[in-house]
Design a protein around this nucleic acid. Structure first.
Lengths: 216, 216
DNA sequence: TCAATACTTGTCTATATAGTCAACTTTTCA
DNA sequence: TGAAAAGTTGACTATATAGACAAGTATTGA
């Protein structure tokens, strides 16, 4: 009421939902966790609503339907994914490039476990909602990165290995710490993975990958 | 009708469902694929029934309910899992032991992709139905296998690495070829993973792991 | 202050789903 | 051969779920 009087100060041109679209973010966050845990079919709009602490009907204001919500969540995830993937850039020193990339991937697993799990669930289900992404951006980028490895191999900077398998191994190893967390916690007898434990894991992976590829 | 006449030959003491329990196996097989693809909540009894080509009510004759069916599927999977895990046995030569183990794991991924995916989905969901297994058998066995590595390290047969990370890396890398198949197919521009391609992947993994751990 | 627009939400509906049940058919074994 | 047991199945029920909708409230810019 009191501050109503002060709102005559112009806030610039009108943008829909400038303030209350925080609801949208809450819903997206809750949806990411729900989809990551239960998959597309197993997730329910009701649980997402409860988790986001909004009425279920509110979700349908921001998202056309369950598939639309899932698509929005997936898009967010893929953007993050691409960002990290692009860290694998051309550079003279393979040890430097791969070391940084492994660190970046591990950091992603630690700070975005739900995104990693969502991606994994989608893949395991046959990637029914990712075909466009995989066919377009992914395919192209993958080939580009592979050529970097071919270059290193030609320059005798690393062993003659199929670059694809090296990449798969890095992806697999780093994502494992997010996706298979329950197994890791029990095997290592801990309650949660600390930042330090992630760093140790990253160091082990870097040691094995770099030495194993003959990079030094 | 005709062979009815010959059935007076004793077939030994009566065992429930000796013949028709093939339905049970059909259901289990269909359920494994359905649960692997959609997770526990996302799977439906109706689709399992259709896939197994039996009426839905028949499933409830063999399995108390959805959870019971899931438990049976999971138990099958874990038995297979243990069999492969136990191949990682004590032996003088780490190169030999790890090489065989990696081959065994890759072979498992190739021949039992659904089992691998089911296990992965369960883990990603927080392993709600695996706590007993993880707490008991798993924990114990994991520690035993770790001590083998410690022994090798003490004997300077491999680099001083945390054995847990080496194991995680082997698991991650080998399971990846089953769990992330869509990604692999698109990246490698193929329609399906052949036995030969699995062998090449196994060779790459063995190269990197063995050399990376200083085994050789 | 006001009308327009953005946003919220309780209630309702159609459908999908897990599970039940009783009638039915087939197999078993004495 | 026959009675008992194993196995099968169509029809049913209760519930959970995605989504629609209309009536409401809050915010905006003039």
């Amino acid at each position: 009421m009191a501050n109503r009087m002060t709102t005559h100060i112009s806030r610039g041109p009108y943008k829909p939902g400038r303030i209350r679209e925080q609801s949208r973010d809450l819903i997206l966050q809750a949806a990411e966790a729900e989809f990551a845990c239960h998959g597309f079919r197993g997730a329910t709009m009701q649980r997402i609503a409860e988790s986001a602490q909004v009425p279920k009907a509110n979700i349908h204001y921001y998202f056309s339907n369950k598939l639309g919500l899932y698509g929005a969540v997936l898009e967010n995830t893929l953007n993050l994914w691409d960002t990290v993937f692009n860290e694998l850039s051309s550079h003279d020193d393979p040890a430097d490039v791969l070391g940084r990339y492994i660190d970046a991937k591990m950091n992603f697993s630690r700070t975005n476990p739900s995104a990693s799990r969502l991606f994994a669930k989608e893949m395991i289900s046959g990637a029914p909602h990712l075909s466009a992404y995989l066919q377009q951006d992914y395919r192209l980028w993958f080939k580009q990165r592979m050529s970097i490895f071919d270059c290193w191999i030609a320059q005798k900077k690393m062993d003659d290995l199929d670059p694809a398998h090296v990449i798969f191994m890095i992806w697999a190893s780093t994502q494992y710490y997010a996706d298979f967390e329950p197994q890791i916690l029990i095997a290592t007898d801990t309650q949660s993975q600390s930042e330090a434990s992630y760093q140790q894991a990253a160091n082990s992976i870097k040691h094995i990958i770099l030495k194993g590829c003959g990079i030094g």
